[in-house]
Design a protein around this nucleic acid. Structure first.
Length: 883
RNA sequence: GCUCGCUUAGCUUAGUGGAAGAGCGCUUCCUUCACACGGAAGAGGUCAGAAGUUCGAAUCUUCUAGCGAGCACCA
């Protein structure tokens, strides 16, 4: 046992133990181990990522799971790594290139640019990994993976080839979500709908066959008029039905002759005649709905917008070269000039934005690769049958809903950073294979969506022997935002490529928000840097703070105060251990059952309960409850009651008694440190060694770290009977503490400071043993505690009583008679109220006949209790009045 | 529009049929030899509203209101 310093220095301790664990290989999984397997794969953070509170929450949860599983005797694999994050990374490096060298990626060319990204990755890509280490994450760093590792990349390509050969991957010219900034196609999941305050423009066109007859059309996108190839009305709309088959003259571009702008009026069910004027302009090249209408009516496609969202020459000389927003304004001006503009009104609609670039996406016709999802049926069944469970369970419904409405996945991206599509072209011939067929074959220019590599993560990261031991993984911990992006796809890939589910449980965390409920964001500046928090409060404090704040299945409102609370807790734990150490004596001496006091039995019993509750809460991924239970047990029960009570025997002068108390303290502390280890790895390790508990380790573990100490087991019957953990001693201790609270209350009512020693008189119901009396005395700070079986109190003496007996604070003249009278009056009222309520209930035949006997009994007991209290209060009132 | 959540003390929340709990904050007292990052005592709630089921509802049902999320989408 080394002496524990007065203050806990988190920084030095954290570095020391993290290095130690790493060197000792504590995190390394052994695929040949005979222990049962417990495994997780980390949701790979973006290689560009910087640790934020979402990561802290997520990875603390995983670390708790991993560390506890090790203590429970599992062979644990927590496999870490990073994701190449196609767009995000490319954008970061492009920006840097622009800023530092004034170059665009096109200036460098593809090959050189990709080289640069790799260089950037080598230099800066590990940041988040080091940050996770600071947090204490016990990942198996020897198995760290990257989604663009060579072996991993081969698996990605092989997957593509396989799906291609199965006919599930196809190339097609489709309307896709186009991001004009990143200049790539996006999947539906990467588009977020945002409410947008825009305008609805009404303009009119002339019906060619009926000169002078005008049709008014409403649109939010007048700049696409040059691309209109029809006007559509609902065939059931009597206002326009006779016009179907006729033509209108498109107003733009102005310079084109009228005969070139004749477009047909078609009838289509998709037109909502409630909206606008009931007449829809159809732009098949720039709108999904219009594209479908165009197909049904065989309309030509006229593209007027470029890949970068500027207008091209087909848009006419006035619009050509303008950005889509500028073109919108200009086209409204043009319509006004030719007198076609009718009106504009404010209009709120939803516009799809690119998740990454945060600009409106442009529906664009382009040639892309699509995937028809494999193994859909198994992926749905495994969740529906409960064989794969979501926590909280309601996410299963969200999953099911998405699976039912599943759409083909656009997997090609027009980026440079990522896995190249393994398709090769030569002289019009196409081959799909992992490596080049040879000389003269040119590879497809596109790369794959990042998620097309991520969805293989649970198994593509594993070599054969690891896979054999650790797949399928036990649990996946991740954010609900990527349920579709990642979780659902992994389940399908799992079935397709391993024939099994990739994990048994999915735990979805809440979203971390600030204390006002807003999402954490850089622009709001409401996102504290976890590393700063770790530096000033300690990693354990940060872990405790965030876990304590996380309610089950809901978003988490983060407040730095919670971290402060975590730090305070660590301080308390530290000092409680220091207190034990200052008592000296043998470490973890044998507990002698015959010397156990009621307090000892009480705390052992509470420890047993805490072990059960914490274990079961953790089994159910209910972290907030686990933390709360631990907090309550350690602070309220152990420190506030047990340690204070134990001071009576520690200072009582009986060496045997003292030694036994120390043995109990050591037993409780050793268990407590282990219970806390998954949550607070650093401080518990430091204390474990500081206290000397490491000597208690099973021999085969070498006694080196608390990481290998066994998880506390619930007490069995045997244990309980040997140590006499029965109802009676528990009730005795509880009653003692209850009387102490009442006694302290008397003090306060008499305005006697808590540090002033004062005489109490105790009139016992049954004789208490000397220990229990001395505990009462200590906790009441009484001097003396006079025990008198036939004490007759002076009238008006403040008193309290419970099953142990009566307690008096004989200080005449210090009591405010008026205040006391008021208090008693209030008490009496409450008693009457409760008695009436319970009596009414007991007099109700319906209740007495239907309620279960236990409930009846309970009510009768309660009635007696209240009547007792009433009698007591009446007595006190009488004494007061006669005083 | 559809679906799903949420609404309990000033704040954050636990509590799925049988006396309204916790933490923080607040009030008062206390530096007594582990800890002021501490100790003690206390105040504070018609469980969003209405109706129903029940002997009994924060808890079950229906409706209403407010908030939030997901999906779909009207140009």
């Amino acid at each position: 046992m080394t002496e524990i310093p007065k203050v806990y220095e988190s920084q030095a301790v954290e570095v020391k133990w993290y290095d130690f664990w790493n060197k000792e290989g504590c995190f390394t999984a052994d695929p040949h181990s005979k222990k049962p397997a417990f495994s997780m794969v980390i949701p790979p953070p973006n290689v560009t990522g910087i640790l934020h509170l979402g990561h802290v929450l997520n990875n603390t949860i995983q670390d708790i799971l991993a560390r506890r599983a090790r203590m429970q005797g599992y062979e644990v694999l927590w496999l870490p790594g990073t994701d190449h994050a196609g767009i995000a990374t490319q954008v970061v490096v492009e920006k840097r290139l622009k800023k530092e060298e004034g170059l665009s990626r096109h200036d460098l060319g593809r090959e050189k640019f990709v080289e640069r990204v790799w260089k950037w990755k080598e230099k800066h890509g590990g940041i988040i990994i080091n940050q996770l280490k600071k947090l204490g994450c016990s990942c198996d760093w020897s198995r760290e993976r990257f989604t663009m590792d060579e072996k991993y990349s081969v698996k990605v390509a092989e997957t593509f080839v396989d799906l291609y050969n199965k006919g599930l991957i196809y190339k097609g010219k489709r309307m896709v979500n186009w991001c004009p900034v990143s200049q790539t196609a996006l999947s539906d999941e990467e588009v977020i709908m945002k409410s947008h305050n825009g305008k609805l423009y009404y303009f009119q066109v002339e019906v060619a066959e009926e000169p002078g007859r005008m049709l008014t059309i409403a649109t939010t996108r007048p700049e696409t008029i040059p691309g209109d190839t029809a006007v559509a009305v609902n065939p059931k709309d009597t206002r326009y039905v006779e016009l179907i088959g006729k033509h209108v003259i498109r107003p733009l571009p102005v310079e084109l002759p009228q005969e070139k702008k004749l477009i047909p009026i078609v009838g289509d069910e998709a037109v909502d005649f409630e909206f606008g004027t009931g007449v829809l302009k159809v732009t098949p090249a720039h709108d999904k709905v219009d594209f479908d209408i165009g197909k049904r009516h065989d309309l030509p496609l006229v593209e007027v917008i470029n890949a970068d969202a500027t207008m091209n020459e087909l848009a006419g000389k006035d619009l050509q070269g303008l950005d889509r927003d500028a073109a919108r304004k200009r086209s409204v001006e043009l319509l006004s000039e030719i007198g076609a503009m009718v009106k504009e009104e404010p209009y709120q609609n939803n516009v799809g934005y690119s998740e990454r670039a945060d600009v409106p996406i442009e529906p664009r016709l382009s040639e892309q690769w699509f995937l028809r999802y494999p193994s859909q049926k198994q992926a749905r069944e495994v969740v529906n049958s409960g064989e794969l469970k979501f926590y909280p369970a309601r996410w299963a419904k969200v999953y099911e809903h998405w699976m039912v409405n599943i759409q083909d996945w656009c997997i090609s991206r027009q980026l440079w950073w990522g896995h190249r599509i393994p398709v090769w072209y030569k002289d019009g011939e196409v081959r799909c294979q992992v490596s080049s067929p040879g000389e003269g074959w040119e590879q497809d220019k596109d790369v794959l969506d990042t998620w097309f590599s991520s969805w293989l993560w649970p198994f593509a990261t594993m070599d054969e022997e690891v896979f054999k031991k650790f797949y399928p993984t036990t649990v996946l911990v991740t954010a609900p935002e990527i349920l579709f992006f990642w979780v659902a796809r992994m389940i399908m890939a799992g079935f397709e490529y391993t024939g099994q589910k990739p994990f048994s449980d999915v735990y979805l965390t809440g979203i971390v928000r600030d204390k006002l409920g807003r999402k954490m964001s850089k622009s709001l500046g409401n996102s504290p840097d976890p590393l700063n928090l770790i530096a000033s409060y300690g990693a354990d404090a940060v872990r405790m703070g965030i876990m304590r704040a996380a309610p089950l299945g809901q978003d988490l409102l983060f407040d730095e105060q919670q971290v402060e609370l975590g730090r305070n807790f660590c301080n308390k734990l530290w000092n409680a251990c220091r207190f034990r150490q200052m008592q000296g004596g043998e470490i973890e001496g044998e507990i002698r059952p015959e010397l156990l006091t009621s307090d000892d039995k009480w705390i052992l019993s509470r420890l047993g309960t805490a072990i059960e509750e914490v274990s079961s809460a953790l089994d159910n991924y209910n972290y907030a409850e686990a933390v709360q239970t631990l907090y309550r047990f350690f602070w309220n029960e152990y420190c506030d009651w047990y340690i204070e009570a134990a001071k009576a025997s520690l200072n009582g002068g009986d060496e045997n008694f003292k030694a036994n108390t120390l043995a109990v303290i050591d037993f409780v502390l050793s268990n407590t440190l282990r219970l806390f280890h998954p949550l607070l790895p650093f401080i518990t390790e430091e204390l474990w060694h500081g206290m000397g508990y490491s000597n208690d380790m099973p021999e085969n573990q070498g006694g080196k770290t608390i990481m290998n100490a066994p998880w506390p087991k619930a007490f069995d019957e045997d244990f309980r009977s040997v140590y006499g953990l029965d109802e009676q001693s528990f009730a005795l201790a509880s009653a003692k503490y209850d009387l102490v609270v009442q006694g302290r209350n008397l003090r306060r009512e008499g305005n006697i400071p808590s540090n002033k020693r004062v005489k109490f008189v105790f009139k016992p119901q049954n004789l208490l043993n000397p220990h229990d009396l001395s505990v009462l005395k200590t906790l009441l700070n009484a001097e003396p505690l006079e025990v008198s079986e036939n004490y007759v109190a002076v009238k008006g003496t403040p008193s309290a009583r419970n099953t142990l007996g009566e307690l008096y604070l004989p200080l005449e003249g210090l009591i405010d008679v008026e205040a006391e009278r008021l208090k008693l009056k209030k008490q009496l009222e409450k008693c009457e109220q409760e008695i009436k309520r319970i009596e009414d209930r007991l007099n109700n035949p319906n209740f007495t006949q239907k309620a279960p006997p236990a409930v009846l009994e309970e009510n009768r007991r309660r009635l007696a209790e209240w009547q007792e209290r009433q009698a007591q209060a009446r007595g006190a009132m009488d004494r007061l009045e006669s005083h």
